[in-house]
C-alpha cells in the first residue's frame, strides 16, 4: 500500500495535478479576448506586463496593497496560512529524504522546529479563517459547503502529518492517511477553486494589465493598489 501510494500513485498525482494546472493556465490565456475584456493585451504588452507585475507583487507583499494595510488581522491570518501550506511541504526534511531516494536530489530542508511552527501556525490560521465564515455576516452570506470542503481538503494533510509526526496512536495509519489526503489535495488543485494556486496569478495579471494598459498605465500613472 505504502509503496503504491508513494510510487505510481504519487507520480500519477503529480502528473494530473501539475499537468492540469498547466492546462488551466493555457485555457485561461486562450480565453482572454481583447475586445470583450476591453484590454489591448497584444498591442501594449510592455505596459501590460509592467502592470501585471505591479498587481501581483503588491498583493504578494503583506504591506503592498492598501487592502492588506487596512486589514492587518486578516492579512496576518492569510499570509501565515498560505506561507505555511506552500513552504512546509516543499522544504520538509521528510519529503526531501524521499526526493533524494527516488530522484537523487533534494531541496534545502527546513529545521524541524521551523517546519513544526509553520504547520501549526497554518492549521490555526486555517481554523481562524473558517471561524470568520461563521462569525461575520458579510462572509457568512457568501459561504457555501464547498468552501468548508476546500478547507478540509487543504488542512487534512497537515493535520494528519502532525498526528504522524507526534506519533499519536498508530503511526502507520496516520502516515497512510497523510499520504492519501496529501494526494487528494494535489489532485483537487486543477479541478476546484484551489486552482487559484495558478489562477490567482492569472487573474491578478489580467487586472494588472487592464490598469497597466487602459486604466492609467499608458498615461504614466502607476496604480497604487
Amino acid at each position: 500500500m505504502y509503496d503504491f501510494l508513494t510510487g505510481p500513485m504519487l507520480w500519477l498525482t503529480f502528473a494530473v495535478s501539475f499537468g492540469g494546472l498547466l492546462v488551466r493556465i493555457v485555457l485561461y490565456i486562450k480565453g482572454l479576448n481583447q475586445q470583450l475584456d476591453r484590454v489591448a493585451y497584444r498591442a501594449h504588452m510592455g505596459y501590460g506586463l509592467k502592470g501585471a507585475f505591479n498587481s501581483i507583487i503588491s498583493f504578494l507583499n503583506p504591506v503592498g496593497a492598501r487592502l492588506w494595510r487596512i486589514r492587518p488581522g486578516f492579512a496576518l491570518m492569510f499570509f501565515v496560512f498560505h506561507i505555511g501550506i506552500v513552504i512546509t511541504p516543499i522544504f520538509l526534511i521528510a519529503h526531501n529524504v524521499m526526493l533524494q531516494e527516488n530522484l537523487g536530489f533534494s531541496l534545502p530542508a527546513l529545521p524541524t522546529c521551523v517546519a513544526d511552527i509553520l504547520t501549526w501556525a497554518a492549521v490555526v490560521a486555517g481554523l481562524l479563517l473558517t471561524l470568520r465564515r461563521v462569525a461575520f455576516p458579510e462572509v457568512r452570506i457568501l459561504t457555501t459547503g464547498y468552501d468548508y470542503l476546500m478547507m478540509v481538503i487543504t488542512l487534512a494533510p497537515f493535520v494528519t502529518g502532525l498526528l504522524a509526526r507526534y506519533g499519536v496512536g498508530d503511526y502507520q495509519f496516520w502516515l497512510t492517511a497523510h499520504i492519501i489526503t496529501g494526494e487528494i489535495w494535489l489532485l483537487s488543485l486543477p479541478f476546484t477553486k484551489l486552482s487559484h494556486v495558478v489562477l490567482f496569478f492569472m487573474s491578478r495579471a489580467q487586472l494588472g494589465m487592464d490598469y497597466g494598459i487602459k486604466r492609467g498605465g499608458m498615461k504614466g500613472s502607476s496604480m497604487s493598489w
Partner: peptide, 8 residues
C-alpha cells in the same frame, strides 16, 4: 470560479 468568498 475562484472567488474565495472571503468577504473582503
Amino acid at each position: 470560479e475562484i472567488c474565495a468568498h472571503c468577504g473582503l
